[in-house]
Amino acid sequence: MLERRFIFERRGQIALLVLAAGALAFQRLGLDPRDLVPHAGGAQIAREFFGAALRPALTFEGALETSSGTFLGRVALALYRTVIFAAAAMGLAIVFGLGLGFVASSSWWSRERFGGRTVARRLSLRAIAMSVQAATRLFIALLRSVHELIWAVLFLAAFGLNTMSCVLALAIPYAGTLAKVYSEMLDEASDAAPGALRDLGASELLVFLCGRLPRAMPDMAAYTFYRFECAVRSSAVLGFFGYPTLGYYLKLSFENLDYREVWTYLYALFLLVVVFELWSSRLRNRFVA
């Protein structure tokens, strides 16, 4: 009984459609599962690479290593820079995300907010507000639709290698994503409180800041925290393009075949994410309680 209902329901159909799409993709890409068996050289690399997993490096592996300092010091520096770039980018992204998110939300213009004395004036003000909102949403979509690594490549072409461009490359799409989610959260925080503050004569900006923002704040904070974790990962990857973050050193070690060093970097990144995970779950409990 249960199965039959489940197949005929909408979500069952969607699930089947999804599986079919997967099969179609497999066919269109002309994939061969046999390619998943690593080629001769690959098998060798795989053995060595995974063999190194349980023995991450604690000192420099390469015999030719001439740089000063210890290996763990370098790992720490790489992690430090990764976090620093992510934090700087998130700082920018939060500021712009809040601004854009406010304009893109419906909370500041809907209903009889505009105090024109005539109906015509009220309507035209509302039309302007709606088009401002639509334009902002489009702008946010554009910011988001270009991946941070592509922004990085664009900036590399335009500016050359510069750490500020790395931060900007991260900040732009993240500002877009934050703005989108913030605006949705602000709109969903539908509550009687903003109306009451309006009824006691507060201006629209104060209604927003005191009535609506605090309500949406816990959700926004939790999401921002999650995005910070993503930003750390992205910041690490930006190293592959020559910025001095974790990815840079990871790539270097991999290309020098120092697999044990690669694993140390991977474990370091993993640890960082675990710390974030534990922290955010603790914060979430606080917010809910």
Binding site: D191, A192, A193, G195, A196, L197, D199, L200, G201, A202, S203, L206, V207, C210, G211, P214, R215, M217, P218
Partner: peptide, 27 residues
Amino acid sequence: VGFVHQDFALVPNVRVAQNVLFGKLGG
């Protein structure tokens, strides 16, 4: 004009002091 709404219309996740002080937002 003070208005007590049926559903109180308070901001739930701030302190009581803030909710009371919001009374002067209009003035």
